[in-house]
Design a protein around this nucleic acid. Structure first.
Lengths: 346, 346
DNA sequence: ACAAGCAACGCAAACGTTTTCGTGTTGACA
DNA sequence: TGTCAACACGAAAACGTTTGCGTTGCTTGT
């Protein structure tokens, strides 16, 4: 087992100084052609590669960006990661991921673990628990130490940093408009509790769009599901709640679900109740994942362009990292949504 | 913006030496109670945290493990990552991910990028292109430099390292046995080309299981799909091929698909051909993802226990990293598969 | 009173780089 | 022959830690 070769070893072997080797490898003019070639040849022979850690220490930058997300087994988040990795790699950066698992303390611990020199900046999506507790000290502290943060999707307005979000409001309106266009008279929404910012915004978009069409939103048609229902175990409870709403409001002919799982569940319940999709009920989801595409009928849904979000977030962060003067001006990039029409709508 | 405080700054501020500060913080007996408390208080006040990079350089270990996978937008792989991250975090390690995107060169580049000191060891699943080219020099080189590798799922036998695999052969036999038990007489398989090791093994298991039941495997019933068809664009081609097989072999009453997408496609085609599932045709997949659970009918499938694979891989790697004597003995851990019965079988 | 011993601290090396500056050797030129 | 520039290279600091060992100053015992 041959350990990695260092400058020192090359220097000793060739009977020159470390600095000479270093300069020779970087083609410094200070080095004679003779020694230059000798060193280069030797280095190539022993497959010399500079030690990243030493470089990081010296340059005080790691060329690594940290990602903190609530969950990785999730189409949206993994697609964002793919986007981040894509541009990060292209620009010579590595990506290190931490999972908060929607937990506040894991989010804090993970950030502290990475903030001590391991990375140059964060890209993150805030965990639900953090949103609920509204405790943002770890973000504030990180930023105040000079480490930039880019938030995506689930952001917190109080924090001053770059953000990449989807236009949830507009996206929701597109959905409602589409359903109204398609002749729906009674449109229900299946959404989350309000502290999840995106859920709140989508609900708001739904309400505003209805009002724009002179339809009065009815509380009966707004189903706010408890969050832990997203986890698969509570699927039955979710379906029961949906069934309750559908049977109690038989006139519902359009359903807007703020995520894929809710939409799929809605379709399942509707089919169980012998309502035909899209003839009797039209269903639209949010987030374009595998489920939407391969469900039967396939689901009309709002694409958030997750990969693009990741790419944009990485661009923002790296641009910020590589600019000389620290400008204290942050931007919020809005990624346009797109309504992908499939079989669950007319 | 207050930069991160270092030992040197504390030392200067308190008018003691750097070593005194360091020792005080580590509760060395060499330090008087007095200075000890003073330093600790100051450190806490300024929220001192040792710089990870400096520690890595000194200790020559980074407490970080590198993951290289072909694709992250994939239920199986993301679940493996979750497993890795779980035990890695528990044992004080971070996780840095690189995506090969099924490309040989990206796999090589990513590994080289990480191998220069950034990580202590690799956990990886080999890209398809690498398997096809059979060029394993980057693995060999990495290992020979003393950096341990754990391969999972898509492994290469020629390389001597720890491995975590699923018992594809046995898993496939379970499927065929189940279908035979359920009364199937003509069982088809939808699989990949042979160079994908897992595809090959599953095909082999299918054949062996059939023969064990005195059923002669027929070439007509073995559909080897070209790999790029897994990408969603070529979905139609995939469905055409399946339809071709199903119509040309109307007696098919059982289908074994080696991945989720193939299984879903098979169900879609079957339903289009007016065959009832599971009455006319029973379908079983491999890999327990979201699609299987939420398809209609929901899909009977073989669970690979992806998260467990990740956990096991991380354990192997970290155990290897933290053992004193480098033993040159590698193990291959086999994760048991489990047949999850749902609505697509009787 | 003086050596020994101990408590408390500082020095310096080490990890692997890069880079600034200093230094020695040449050669040319006056 | 003496001066100076150019050339080629080495020494050392720096990044932030940890740690073995040397060095103080003081207390203790005889």
């Amino acid at each position: 087992m041959k350990r990695k070769v260092t400058l020192k070893q090359i220097a000793r072997e060739l009977d020159v100084s470390i600095s000479t080797v270093s300069k020779a490898l970087r083609n410094s003019v200070e080095i004679s052609e003779d020694t230059g070639e000798k060193v280069q040849a030797f280095a190539k022979l022993y497959n010399y590669r500079p030690n990243n850690i030493a470089l990081s220490l010296k340059n005080r930058k790691t060329k690594t960006i940290g990602i903190i997300i609530p969950e990785i087994v999730h189409h949206f988040f993994s697609k964002v990661i793919r986007g981040i990795e894509l541009v990060a790699n292209k620009r010579g950066y590595n990506v290190i991921v931490g999972l908060s698992n929607e937990s506040f303390s894991k989010e804090v611990i993970n950030m502290e673990m990475l903030a001590n020199g391991s990375i140059d900046g964060f890209i993150l999506s805030v965990s639900k628990e953090t949103l609920k507790l509204q405790d943002y000290h770890h973000f504030i502290e990180t930023i105040s130490q000079g480490m930039p943060i880019v938030m995506f999707d689930r952001v917190v307005n109080e924090i001053n940093c770059d953000k990449v979000i989807v236009d949830d409001l507009k996206g929701s309106k597109k959905v409602v408009n589409k359903l109204v266009e398609n002749g729906c008279k009674t449109i229900a929404i299946i959404t989350t509790k309000d502290y999840v910012s995106v859920g709140k915004l989508r609900t708001q978009g739904y309400i505003e769009a209805l009002e724009a069409h002179n339809i009065k939103p009815k509380a009966d048609l707004i189903l706010k599901v408890d969050d832990n229902l997203v986890s698969d175990e509570h699927l039955e409870v979710l379906e029961q709640e949906i069934e309750f709403m559908l049977t109690n409001n038989p006139k519902i002919d359009g359903v807007f679900a703020v995520n894929e799982l809710y939409a799929i569940s809605a379709m399942k319940v509707a089919q169980k109740l012998k309502r035909k999709i899209p003839e009797d009920i039209q269903v639209v989801g949010f987030t374009d994942g595998v489920l939407s595409k391969h469900a039967s009928p396939s689901l009309t849904t709002v694409s958030q362009h997750a990969q693009e979000m990741g790419e944009k977030a990485a661009q923002l962060l790296i641009d910020n990292l590589e600019v000389e003067e620290e400008e204290e001006t942050y931007q919020t990039v809005i990624i346009e949504t797109e309504l992908i029409e499939r079989e669950s709508t007319k």
